[in-house]
Design a protein around this nucleic acid. Structure first.
Length: 478
RNA sequence: GGCGGGGUAGCCAAGUGGUAAGGCAGGGGACUGCAAAUCCCCCAUCACGGGUUCGAUUCCCGUCCCCGCCUCCA
């Protein structure tokens, strides 16, 4: 494998060369747990889940860290509104986040550090920066001195001297420079606070990621991810804090995903035009939803459009239909991905993924693989051993690439349907016997009525030369 | 204003200095009692204007348009 990733810092595609041979260390900015996840969060989650799965499938030992910001202004405000402790809010939405990620088929992080669990690490980093005079204290707040870090602006390509500041500079009275940002905020009355050398307070947002990433992955880890909207100021500040303190590179490769947009506008909590991730999963299913996310390269914008979700659903069905057909004639577990006609498509898939996770190209390879697989189906059904072996290879490849790498939950959908088939089997067989009799009498009105009834119940009937065959629709088809 | 990303068939979307993957929709065909599923065929000259080149959609310049960031944000 020769994966290349587009690195935001250097603005170029660069070969993925991990710090530690055979291992991959990833840190992805997680949620601020103050409300439910929306489909924009889902995209970021799927993009980095994809990276992680692909690295794992390629043989890397992956350590995936995703933090939870469980203390910040919005959590406090929400807690006030509901008259509960901020920790109640944080706990509630952390659980909701994890539940929703599970439903989306996103593998759980190996480490999910909480900001409130790393106050000491953050304070140590702040202390180091103070010692080096790259930060200063002001009335219990500690600010990072932006101009003390010569690399400031390198990620977002901004010139410090040309940065415009809005009219509403926070803490303008205490900052030496409007560009400086808070690493520690002194507690205001009624706010949650932790003791610190600078008095009771809480951490700023950016400091947690600098501290937690370094703690769990060490300096110079492989990939730091997040949404493009985090490039500035969040990631810029993370770099500044780490590199100013340690004088060594923070991250090897920066990967950012593009935004989900609603029509022409970006979707975000502050605009209020959000689509709940949980509802989207419920409505379309995790597989189709992921296929929609994967329908565009991860850095380009993706417009929310139910027609495109329908396309994704169609694709998902095409894939599950092929697996179901193949499973009827061969044991997919016997399939050899390296077999001649199969390998070509697997290679095309990997070539796409290797090129900066070009998911649209990878999915296209899967489409071509399925077409080739469907072509072998009739021969395999007739008992042709070569065709059967090839068919098993195609199916095994789709199962592996589709489920293990892309996380499409194809097998899960089929398993769901299989459960229904078990429950309905006796009943359906009886109806099909009646239908067969009707067809023998050329009473097609009755035969079609039975088929329609079954269809309404989620049972699909296919007439084959050797007789009728049926299956339960997958959740996505219902 | 600064920084960045884009304009490819009805729609979505890859991609390449040598006449453009894949999907959806649409049309035609095979199969079927009819369907379903599946297969086959058809369906673009790549925003516009220059330039470089034997040759550009792909490189350069300009124009127009869209979007994101510059404040919390995946």
């Amino acid at each position: 494998m020769s994966l290349v990733l587009y690195d935001t810092l250097s603005r170029e595609k660069r070969p993925f060369e991990p710090r530690d041979e055979g291992k991959a260390s990833l840190y992805v900015c997680g949620p601020t747990v103050q409300s439910d996840a929306h489909i924009g969060h889902g995209r970021a989650a799927v993009v980095f889940d994809l990276l992680r799965r692909y690295l794992a499938a390629s043989g890397y030992e992956v350590t995936f860290v995703q933090n939870v910001t469980d203390i910040d202004d919005k959590i406090i405000m929400r807690a006030r509104r509901e008259r509960v402790d901020p920790a109640v809010i944080a706990t509630r939405y952390t659980r909701a986040w994890n539940r929703t990620m599970d439903a989306l088929g996103v593998l759980p992080p190996d480490i999910q550090p909480l900001a409130t669990g790393h106050l000491l690490e953050m304070q140590a980093l702040i202390g180091e920066l103070l010692e080096q005079d790259k930060a200063y204290e002001a009335d219990g707040d500690v600010f990072f001195r932006v101009r003390a870090f010569e690399g400031y602006g390198k990620l977002s390509r901004r010139q410090v001297d040309e940065m415009q500041q809005g009219d509403d500079i926070v803490d303008a009275d205490r900052k030496e420079d409007p560009l400086d940002f808070a690493m520690w905020k002194s507690a205001k009355p009624g706010e949650p606070a932790w003791p610190s050398p600078w008095g009771p307070g809480r951490p700023g947002w950016h400091i947690e990621c600098s501290a937690m990433a370094a703690k769990h992955l060490g300096g110079g880890f492989d990939v730091h991810g997040g949404g493009l909207d985090l490039v500035f100021p969040h990631h810029e500040n993370e770099i500044a804090q780490h590199e100013a303190a340690h004088g060594a590179p923070f991250v090897r490769t920066w990967v950012h995903n593009g935004m989900v947009q609603m029509g022409d506008a970006k979707m975000s909590k502050s605009v209020g035009n959000v689509v709940s991730l949980e509802e989207a999963i419920h409505q379309w299913g995790p597989g189709p939803l992921r296929l929609w996310y994967l329908s565009a390269q991860h850095r380009t914008p993706l417009i929310f459009d139910t027609d495109r979700l329908r396309d994704a659903t169609t694709t998902h069905q095409r894939f599950t239909t092929f697996l179901r057909s193949a499973a009827r004639v061969v044991d997919i577990a016997d399939g050899d991905l390296e077999a001649d006609p199969v390998q070509r498509h697997v290679a095309a898939f990997r070539a796409g993924m290797d090129d900066d996770l070009n998911a649209p190209a990878a999915v296209a390879a899967l489409h071509e693989l399925v077409t080739a697989g469907n072509e072998t189906l009739p021969l395999a059904e007739k008992g042709d051993a070569d065709a059967a072996a090839t068919l098993a290879g195609f199916a095994a490849a789709l199962r592996h690439l589709g489920d293990d790498v892309l996380g499409l939950a194809l097998e899960a959908s089929l398993a769901d349907a299989a459960g229904v088939e078990q429950q309905l089997g006796v009943l359906v067989e009886q109806l099909l016997d009646q239908r067969a009799a009707a067809r023998a009498d050329r009473d097609f009105a009755t035969a079609d009525a039975i088929r329609d009834q079954l269809a309404a119940a989620g049972v699909v009937v296919e007439d084959r030369p050797e007789g009728a065959r049926w299956y339960a629709a997958t959740p996505e088809e219902r």
